[in-house]
Write a protein that binds this DNA or RNA. Structure first.
Lengths: 255, 255
DNA sequence: TGTTGTTGTTTCATTATTTGAACCACTGGT
DNA sequence: ACCAGTGGTTCAAATAATGAAACAACAACA
């Protein structure tokens, strides 16, 4: 594994820690030597990718990420495009609605609107959602090529709840059903007590970019609800894909 | 220089290129070998920090930055804190108001409210504003340490309009005047026909974080207007700094 | 006050990675 | 067919990363 990747994984560890961590804690989590960890943190620090609290000496995400993120967003305004649909769906359903974007083998939540109800599902922005264990992930796979699915299912699959399926055949079945249905359904496969439906949206060149999902407590997930929400996410992703320039007739490759 | 820093600088080069560049172009810009550049890009690619267009094979900023940026923002909600002040100022002045955040030697626009007037100034989110040629930049420098100013003025200074001052002594004079006045004034130093006033806001530990600026067409920039807007930005940054101090204390208690 | 257990920090011989010149394969233009 | 661009690959040599161990600074506690 290259040094750069190691450093970036360290950065991911910093990102995935809810509270800022110190040197030794990070070294332990990353399984790197203390000295190595420190040198990497110093380099990340010098470039503004992490930040160090001057008193606690703990490390957190740095300001460079904010500016680079803004820059990326300004070049590819996905959030801006998707957010209105997420808000509209949230208002309509009164449930938690979120959008994800695919990147690096996983889905990232890029827009979240929580429900106003007392019993509601929460999700952090930037949260990582594994492909095999979430409604969003299955919806994304169902929109992907066979070779992509194969590659994704070849990786080791982690179980998050007793309901998480890590059986390849079962997952393929879910994917096929999702393709036929137009949206995915997942019951407590990632978080206990959370029921979700999701569908994928596409970029102009026809590749799936991410998903829209509606999540609610299992208590409220009646068959009628599920079907209604499924139709809603299906329509939302069709509209989003359209506004991203995706046209189903656009199958010929250019030039 | 460590390998990690080299890779991150390469990432910065990708970020600073307005259009996605190919391998050799990036290698030239970075002054690295082609093979080196490629390996770094592959590692950045594998981690989602850059993205490769499958047709042109050019590299652009990757989706991981968007999610990490969101994550950083959720932990350190600068935009959320600053935005209300920007909106309030925009409503009050009916001119374009924007906030910037410092990062990596430059200011980035992180919140923009445009004027409702027909003749108005526009600014994109994520736009980069050089320190020496903008009201925001001069305001930021005026709030910085002497050694920081010295380092910033040591770099090569680019001219954007005939009014851009690239003379160090002149710039120092502007900085000193800004310190005394409490806000900076810049007349068409970055964009022709744009007049701006700006002031810097501070984090809890007393370091300048970014600026608030009001920009208007030079036509409307009467001395009275300038003075009034200057007072407004001064008051706004004082309020923002105060509310950032609170946030910082809040974060510390959490860890 | 001394002891113990934490931190973060530095060192340096060992080790493994990075480096880059040269080379290959491909594409589009002439 | 040729040339001038790409991106991509190779492998010995150069260099940077590694990690065990020692060190320092601090806090908790008897």
């Amino acid at each position: 594994m290259g040094t750069v990747t190691k450093a970036l994984e360290l950065l991911n560890i910093v990102a995935n820690s809810h509270a800022p961590l110190g040197l030794t804690a990070l070294a332990n989590k990353a399984q790197y030597d203390k000295a190595t960890t420190r040198r990497m943190l110093l380099e990340l620090l010098a470039n503004g990718f992490v930040e160090q609290d001057s008193e606690s000496r703990n490390y957190g995400l740095g300001p460079a990420l904010q500016s680079l993120g803004k820059l990326r967003e300004s070049r590819f305004p996905l959030v801006k495009t998707v957010q209105p649909f997420v808000r509209a769906l949230a208002k309509q359903t009164e449930e938690m609605v979120h959008a994800t974007e695919y990147g690096n083998g996983i889905l990232y939540s890029i827009s979240v609107e929580e429900s106003t109800k007392a019993n509601r599902i929460s999700l952090e922005l930037g949260q990582k959602l594994p492909l095999h264990a979430t409604a969003s992930g299955i919806a994304f796979l169902a929109a992907s090529t066979d070779s992509f699915i194969e590659a994704a299912l070849k990786k080791p699959l982690v179980s998050f709840t007793p309901q998480t399926s890590i059986d390849r055949k079962n997952l393929m079945k879910s994917i096929v059903e999702t393709s036929a249905r137009g949206y995915s359904i997942s019951n407590q496969t990632f978080d206990e007590g959370v029921h979700s439906v999701a569908a994928a949206y596409f970029s102009a060149n026809g590749k799936p970019l991410g998903t829209i999902a509606i999540a609610m407590p299992t208590l409220r997930a009646t068959p009628k609800m599920i079907a209604a929400n499924g139709k809603l996410v299906s329509r939302a992703v069709a509209d989003i894909s359209a506004s991203l320039g995706f046209n189903k007739l656009h199958l010929r490759s250019a030039s």
